Simulated assay, not measured.
Amino acid sequence: MSDDPNFDVPVGLFEDVADLKAKVTQLTALLEQLTEHADHAGETADEDGTAAGEETAADAADEWQYPPFILLLDSPEYDDELRALTEWVEGVLVPGYLAEPSADARWCHLWFDHPVAVARLHACWLAWQELTDPASCGYTGPSVWHRDHLDPCMRELRASSGPFQGCTKGENQINHRLPGLVPSAWRRTGEAP
């Protein structure tokens, strides 16, 4: 078919195939985990007579924990998650990906004071954890992470209208603008801001 002059390969086809391979690898790993869990569940029964395969909703919720949205966490879980996120941002993201801030590419050294930045960076970090593991996503994971997660996240955060728009770095000073607090449905009644 390569001798056929009418045979053209679309430019994005190779990226699409790589993405599909990564998804198949990820789904295969998940299927293996679920199969192992089902095999183990069929071998045992609870003391109260309930078959292990007949888990209660509470048991299933305890077993399959996915990372929560960081802004919905309360202390001390929020503090622990923010601490881990800070290690990644300051240890991987800042030295590896962020050049000197400019008017066109802002960065605030107090990014953790900006809830929008915390939320976006946390989502980017969760994706990084998943997509840098060849066992779950193959070898194309890092490329997918850069294209689908890091680049859009940095465009939003570092844009002139992004969360760091009021934070500036002068020659002898750094001005940090804290975001204003907006009433939120997430905040509980009586909770201090």
Rank of each mutant, 00 (worst) to 15 (best):
G138H: 10
G138K: 10
W88I: 01
G141C: 09
R147E: 09
A159I: 03
A123C: 03
A127I: 09
G91F: 13
L126Q: 15
A119N: 13
D104L: 12
C137A: 13
P152T: 02
S143F: 07
F112R: 08
Y97I: 00
A84W: 09
L73E: 14
Y78V: 00
R158D: 07
Y78D: 02
A123L: 08
C137N: 04
L150V: 07
D79C: 01
L131D: 05
P142A: 13
D148K: 15
A105D: 11
W145C: 06
A159T: 00
H109I: 01
V89G: 04
T86D: 04
H109W: 11
D133T: 07
R83T: 11
A127D: 04
L73K: 03
A127R: 14
Y78L: 09
L131N: 06
A103N: 10
L157E: 07
L85R: 06
A117T: 03
L85D: 01
G141R: 14
E130A: 08
D133W: 08
H122G: 02
V92K: 08
V116K: 11
V92R: 11
C137H: 15
G96Y: 05
E87C: 02
A103L: 08
L82K: 13
A117P: 12
V118G: 07
A105I: 02
L150W: 14
S160N: 08
A99S: 15
C124E: 00
R106S: 05
T86K: 10
G91R: 11
E81G: 00
D151C: 10
S102N: 04
H122V: 01
L98E: 07
R120H: 00
W145H: 09
R83F: 10
G162C: 11
W128H: 15
C153F: 06
H109N: 10
V118Q: 07
E90C: 03
D133K: 12
Y139P: 01
Q129H: 05
V118M: 09
L73F: 02
S102L: 06
Y78Q: 01
P95R: 05
C153D: 04
P115M: 05
M154H: 08
A117S: 15
D148L: 12
L126W: 01
R155L: 15
P142Y: 12
W88Y: 12
L150G: 06
D148V: 07
E100S: 12
W125R: 12
V116T: 12
A103K: 07
D104R: 13
R106Y: 00
P76N: 04
L93M: 07
L131S: 00
S160D: 12
H149Q: 14
P101V: 03
E81N: 01
R83E: 12
A105E: 11
T140L: 01
C137V: 14
V144T: 14
L98A: 07
E87A: 03
D79N: 05
T140I: 00
L82F: 03
A119W: 02
L150S: 02
G96M: 01
A105R: 15
L98P: 00
R147T: 14
P76F: 02
A99N: 13
M154V: 12
A105L: 11
W125N: 12
L85G: 02
R120V: 06
A117N: 05
V118Y: 05
S75A: 15
D113G: 08
T140E: 13
R155E: 15
L110A: 14
H114A: 06
L82T: 02
S136Q: 09
S161T: 11
R120L: 13
G138S: 07
S160A: 11
W145Y: 14
D148P: 01
R106M: 14
